[in-house]
């Protein structure tokens, strides 16, 4: 792809990003005027006297930052899993990683409800459980892929979907044994949402997502080699087994951090890299940074759309799935699909 086209696309993306962020911090059930907020800031008023500023800083800004970080992280994880499994349909969602992480995060609550592991109550058990479950899922899918040398993308996806179903049945079981009050919180969380309050989740996302993304993007050149040919990559000096292990660990960690904070939001890792590839080509050194940018903006835009177009505070996971599922079907039905093999 020509450099000019990539530059144009990136510029357009950045402009869209600024607009989306502005929309995200001002629009919603309650409109916030930036002027009013600025005024209140200037006056140095108390939170109670500054309704606009407090909505802006306590609700909208953290929510916007969370959607940017989560979207960016999921998109980069999608790119990494696709390179890892040499399969353009691999994503945290289609591989069942998101469901597994959700089960993990939820198990942590249940464990707490039952009064187990009390000694660990100060640890971020949600994130730890999410990571362990997500890691186990990727490991299983990957072992299946490595076991049969000729495993097709269909096999990998079916394995991922099956493990996802397994995780979902685990979630159903934990719903069955959860207390009614827990159940309400849980159901809402499982739909995926960035309607967080305060900066705790934002910081957790920031410190979990940013280093993982940076590490994965640094591996972009190696992903190009791996995607082209495993043997060629190895012969050119890449330790493929180590690269795969590392990517699998970091990708799972990244997904787990995101899911533990905002729930299992689907299809970002699929839709975004595919759309970006159309503009940048498949070279990961362009694809991954631009996907990061596009992923954050896309999720933020979905959140704005959910607030404006649908009644009330529609969970963002519903919006991304409404967009992502038809897109996934389109990719499945496209003739080229049969050309892909592990």
């Amino acid at each position: 792809m020509s450099r000019a086209r990539v530059t144009l696309f990136t510029t357009a993306l950045l402009v869209a990003g600024v607009l989306v962020v502005l929309a995200s911090i001002t629009l919603g059930t309650e409109r916030v005027s930036l002027y009013t907020a600025w005024d209140e800031w200037q006056r140095g008023a108390d939170w109670a006297d500054a309704p606009a500023l407090s909505v802006l800083l306590k609700l909208r800004l953290p929510r916007t930052l969370a959607s940017l970080l989560a979207g960016a992280g999921l998109a980069v994880a999608g790119c990494a899993f696709q390179a890892l499994l040499r399969n353009p349909l691999a994503t945290p969602y289609t591989l069942g990683v998101s469901s597994a992480a959700a089960l993990g995060a939820w198990s942590a609550f249940i464990v707490a409800d039952f009064g187990w592991l009390v000694w660990a109550e100060h640890l971020p058990m949600g994130q730890i459980f999410a990571f362990v479950f997500a890691g186990a899922d990727v490991l299983l899918v990957w072992m299946l892929a490595a076991r049969s040398a000729r495993s097709s993308p269909t096999l990998l996806l079916l394995a991922g979907v099956t493990l996802g179903m397994l995780a979902n049945s685990g979630i159903m079981f934990s719903r069955y044994i959860a207390s009614p009050t827990r159940l309400v919180v849980m159901d809402r969380w499982l739909m995926g949402g960035v309607d967080i309050i305060g900066y705790g989740p934002v910081l957790a996302l920031f410190f979990g997502v940013v280093p993982c993304m940076a590490v994965l993007i640094l591996l972009a050149g190696r992903f190009d080699q791996l995607g082209f040919s495993r043997d060629l990559a190895e012969s050119r000096g890449i330790n493929v087994a180590r690269l795969q292990w590392f990517t699998f660990l970091v990708g799972s960690l990244l997904t787990a951090v995101v899911v533990a904070q905002v729930g299992p939001i689907g299809f970002i890792g699929l839709v975004v890299p595919h759309a970006v590839r159309a503009f940048t080509g498949p070279g990961h050194r362009r694809l991954m940074p631009i996907s990061m940018l596009a992923g954050g903006i896309f999720l933020c835009a979905c959140d704005v759309a959910a607030r404006l177009l649908l009644p009330g505070e529609t969970p963002i996971g519903i919006v991304t799935t409404l967009i992502g599922a038809p897109f996934f079907l389109y990719l499945l039905l496209r003739r080229k699909f049969t050309d892909w093999e592990y």
């Binding site: 696709q82 353009p88 190009d224 995607g227 060629l232 050119r236 000096g237």
Partner: peptide, 22 residues
């Protein structure tokens, strides 16, 4: 070291099947 080896020794495997089209 693998990289030094790769500067001396090239290898072209059988039936290269790229996952992504460059």
């Amino acid at each position: 070291a693998p990289r030094s080896r790769a500067q001396i020794l090239g290898y072209l495997p059988q039936a290269v099947q790229p996952a992504f089209s460059l």
